[in-house]
Amino acid sequence: MASQGTKRSYEQMETDGERQNATEIRASVGKMIDGIGRFYIQMCTELKLSDYEGRLIQNSLTIERMVLSAFDERRNKYLEEHPSAGKDPKKTGGPIYKRVDRKWMRELVLYDKEEIRRIWRQANNGDDATAGLTHMMIWHSNLNDTTYQRTRALVRTGMDPRMCSLMQGSTLPRRSGAAGAAVKGVGTMVMELIRMIKRGINDRNFWRGENGRKTRSAYERMCNILKGKFQTAAQRAMMDQVRESRNPGNAEIEDLIFLARSALILRGSVAHKSCLPACVYGPAVASGYDFEKEGYSLVGIDPFKLLQNSQVYSLIRPNENPAHKSQLVWMACNSAAFEDLRVLSFIRGTKVSPRGKLSTRGVQIASNENMDAMESSTLELRSRYWAIRTRSGGNTNQQRASAGQISVQPAFSVQRNLPFDKPTIMAAFTGNTEGRTSDMRAEIIRMMEGAKPEEMSFQGRGVFELSDERAANPIVPSFDMSNEGSYFFGDNAEEYDN
């Protein structure tokens, strides 16, 4: 993207840094990872977990959730003011799984939030270390993106479920800051804005008074975040219109849905970061690795190297396929839920299948599930090659597409044709070009129609051997075009429920 120079890199967003050079960025990201790792080690000690239990991804998720809940100030305040039966607002906890007599047992633990905050700050040299908290939120978000298709949420806001490739980060909490905003897809931002506008339509006082002023500035800020994701002048001009509207209503909703559809071809720039579970960072720190000293990046080879040398386990339900569970977590670790499966298959070195073909449910185990038949197995999170994460949407291309997802959002900077089903997408653009945004709409449609099938995206960008740390010898991959490109292809993934 041309304006790259004016933006802070995501590592800076990730670490609240002012302008830093590459070495400083690597050190501050490393410091953040160190903090998460030290916190995780301490929690495993508190909970008396064995090494194996500490490497269980379900335990990692519970521990991450506990610290996120302990620092969720708004919710904590709300819980104190609106006490609900049987919930102690000062405590947080969740299921911890232990191996007892050759069987997995679930144990519900409860801790004072104050105590968890103390352990977290102690692991982070006394700081609140917001960057580390956001990092864990993005890992949870990436896992949700890989596990669930947001059909219901899309339909509720009037969008087409086939636009799911635009929904990265749709389950990120509001408090995820600049680093969170960077990884949100165009569809996620559109959905947040539509929800806001709908509230304004239904509630006369939404934009009024002292609160209304705050609401208005939040609305304009979200519009600017979305505008910054678009790469064409016409899309940005249309966002200006939406932002400046005196009284946002149905016309703005129409414009936003139009823009979301246009992003299936004229893709937005959305950041991709490899955020790993805390149970990967903990053992690495415990083994003596100093992330701050060595430096770390979320968008280069580092996460690949770390996963190459990590042992992570997962509980497996009786009829689940461990290899499929591994694929789910591998995609989440690489922030690749909406990437082209052919690119992923090449990088991973084994075939990556669409969601609907995987015999696996989510990673988390519900409290009512029976533990008797639970097994555990090693997650295979290694890769054959590594590639640089991208934040450009890439230019655009036609490809055989599917009944489910009709476009992709690249996660890796790797040369390819970008699949999208042009006739299906263009069919949504018939007729409606009147109104105050008509010239911009016409211009956007013209650009979409001009998108050429034979153009290559990320020209000359390749993948790298894991021994090639400096990215000196790019390998331009070859793809098996007979395979499906979309992950949520004609899909039956479970729906995400809060």
Results as ranks from 00 to 15, higher is better:
residue 3 S to N: 01
residue 5 G to Q: 09
residue 5 G to I: 07
residue 5 G to W: 09
residue 7 K to G: 11
residue 7 K to Q: 14
residue 7 K to I: 06
residue 11 E to D: 12
residue 17 G to Y: 09
residue 20 Q to A: 05
residue 21 N to Q: 00
residue 23 T to Q: 15
residue 23 T to L: 00
residue 25 I to V: 09
residue 28 S to Y: 03
residue 29 V to F: 04
residue 32 M to I: 04
residue 33 I to S: 05
residue 35 G to H: 14
residue 41 I to N: 14
residue 41 I to T: 15
residue 49 L to S: 01
residue 50 S to W: 02
residue 50 S to E: 03
residue 52 Y to F: 13
residue 54 G to W: 12
residue 55 R to C: 09
residue 60 S to P: 00
residue 61 L to H: 00
residue 63 I to V: 13
residue 70 A to G: 02
residue 73 E to T: 04
residue 73 E to A: 01
residue 74 R to D: 10
residue 75 R to Y: 11
residue 75 R to F: 11
residue 76 N to L: 12
residue 81 E to G: 14
residue 82 H to E: 08
residue 84 S to A: 15
residue 95 P to N: 14
residue 97 Y to R: 13
residue 99 R to S: 06
residue 101 D to L: 01
residue 101 D to V: 12
residue 104 W to S: 03
residue 105 M to S: 14
residue 106 R to N: 05
residue 113 K to P: 01
residue 115 E to M: 11
residue 115 E to Q: 02
residue 117 R to T: 02
residue 120 W to H: 06
residue 122 Q to M: 02
residue 131 A to V: 04
residue 132 G to L: 08
residue 138 I to H: 14
residue 140 H to K: 11
residue 140 H to D: 07
residue 140 H to F: 11
residue 143 L to P: 06
residue 151 T to N: 12
residue 153 A to Y: 09
residue 153 A to R: 15
residue 158 G to H: 00
residue 159 M to K: 08
residue 161 P to N: 08
residue 177 G to P: 08
residue 178 A to G: 08
residue 185 G to A: 07
residue 187 G to C: 07
residue 193 L to E: 07
residue 193 L to C: 00
residue 195 R to L: 05
residue 198 K to G: 12
residue 198 K to H: 08
residue 202 N to K: 13
residue 205 N to Y: 01
residue 207 W to N: 13
residue 209 G to L: 01
residue 211 N to G: 01
residue 216 R to P: 06
residue 217 S to R: 06
residue 224 N to C: 13
residue 229 K to M: 11
residue 229 K to A: 08
residue 233 A to L: 04
residue 240 D to E: 07
residue 240 D to W: 12
residue 251 A to T: 12
residue 252 E to R: 11
residue 255 D to I: 08
residue 259 L to H: 10
residue 260 A to M: 10
residue 260 A to I: 10
residue 262 S to V: 09
residue 262 S to Y: 06
residue 264 L to G: 14
residue 266 L to C: 07
residue 270 V to Q: 04
residue 272 H to F: 11
residue 277 P to C: 13
residue 280 V to E: 15
residue 286 A to L: 03
residue 287 S to F: 10
residue 287 S to I: 05
residue 292 E to N: 13
residue 294 E to D: 14
residue 299 V to A: 05
residue 305 K to A: 04
residue 306 L to Y: 11
residue 308 Q to E: 02
residue 314 S to R: 06
residue 319 N to L: 02
residue 322 P to F: 03
residue 323 A to F: 01
residue 327 Q to T: 12
residue 332 A to P: 04
residue 333 C to K: 11
residue 337 A to N: 06
residue 347 I to T: 05
residue 349 G to N: 10
residue 352 V to R: 10
residue 355 R to W: 14
residue 356 G to E: 12
residue 360 T to G: 04
residue 361 R to V: 04
residue 362 G to E: 15
residue 366 A to D: 04
residue 366 A to I: 07
residue 370 N to L: 12
residue 370 N to S: 06
residue 371 M to E: 06
residue 372 D to T: 12
residue 373 A to L: 02
residue 390 T to P: 13
residue 390 T to D: 05
residue 391 R to I: 09
residue 392 S to L: 13
residue 392 S to I: 05
residue 394 G to H: 15
residue 396 T to K: 00
residue 396 T to S: 03
residue 400 R to H: 03
residue 401 A to W: 03
residue 401 A to K: 15
residue 407 S to C: 03
residue 409 Q to A: 00
residue 417 N to Y: 05
residue 418 L to D: 10
residue 421 D to Y: 05
residue 439 D to K: 09
residue 445 I to G: 09
residue 452 K to N: 12
residue 454 E to S: 14
residue 459 Q to G: 00
residue 460 G to R: 01
residue 463 V to M: 03
residue 465 E to R: 02
residue 468 D to W: 10
residue 471 A to M: 10
residue 472 A to T: 15
residue 476 V to W: 12
residue 483 N to A: 04
residue 483 N to W: 12
residue 486 S to N: 10
residue 486 S to I: 10
residue 492 N to T: 02
residue 493 A to K: 07
residue 494 E to S: 05
residue 495 E to A: 07
residue 496 Y to T: 11
